[in-house]
């Protein structure tokens, strides 16, 4: 399999075949990520297109010394999705003249537990429910640690420790899988 970095090099040279391979390899995961954040398939599909257009236009900006290709790609996808999500929330707020129209404004879980559960696969099962919730709030909702602490009414220090513990557990879980492979 051609490494991602080599594909990006070829994309810089305007190689459409390399871009096509790159798209086929990553589009399903990117669409899953965008869909998870936006919870709207039309918006997710639009952001997916923006993400890959950005790859086409900005491949030369990728710096392998700073991050892996996946980190770079998912950072773009997540950032674009969260921007659109916040913009949509802001529009809804303006149109309704109310505060946050989503359940999280009242401190509720924005997503039913049953729905969330379907996203959780084996690695996330290594986390406690509270740790999973923190990862979801931070990564998929883009909340800062302070915002998470306020929402959960927990001390900031506790939140920081839990987030760190959660990522360390995930690291162990991923490493264990790699060792078994």
């Amino acid at each position: 399999m051609v490494p991602d970095v080599d594909l990006l090099d070829r994309i810089v040279g305007r190689d459409r075949e390399a871009f096509s391979l790159f798209y086929d390899r990553h589009a399903p995961v990117v669409l899953g990520l965008c869909s998870r954040i936006l919870r709207d398939s039309r918006d997710a599909e639009e952001v997916l297109q923006e993400v890959f257009l950005k790859v086409w236009n900005d491949a030369a900006r990728f710096d392998a010394r700073r991050a892996s290709v996946k980190t770079w790609l998912f950072t773009i996808a997540r950032s674009r999705s969260l921007d659109r999500w916040r913009s949509r929330k802001s529009d809804e707020k303006r149109m309704t003249g109310e505060g946050d129209s989503f359940a999280e404004a009242a401190g509720e879980d924005p997503e039913p537990a049953s729905l969330r559960k379907q996203y959780v696969e084996r690695h996330l099962q290594s986390l406690s429910p509270k740790e999973r919730e923190l990862i979801f709030m931070a990564y998929y909702e883009g909340l800062t640690q302070e915002e998470i602490a306020a929402r959960l009414e927990e001390p900031l220090g506790t939140i920081k420790s839990r987030v760190r513990a959660a990522l360390q557990k995930l690291r162990s879980s991923f490493a264990g899988e790699a060792a078994r492979a």
């Binding site: 459409r16 899953g32 890959f52 892996s68 980190t71 996203y119 959780v120 696969e121 690695h123 690291r171």
Partner: peptide
């Protein structure tokens, strides 16, 4: 960061409609 980059793989992957690739290309 490598751990975080693997988080999207814990989500269900969706089949990507072919027209999206056509539009991007």
């Amino acid at each position: 960061e490598e751990v975080v980059a693997r988080l999207p793989y814990t989500l269900p992957q969706k089949p990507v409609p072919p027209y999206l690739k056509q539009e991007v290309m």
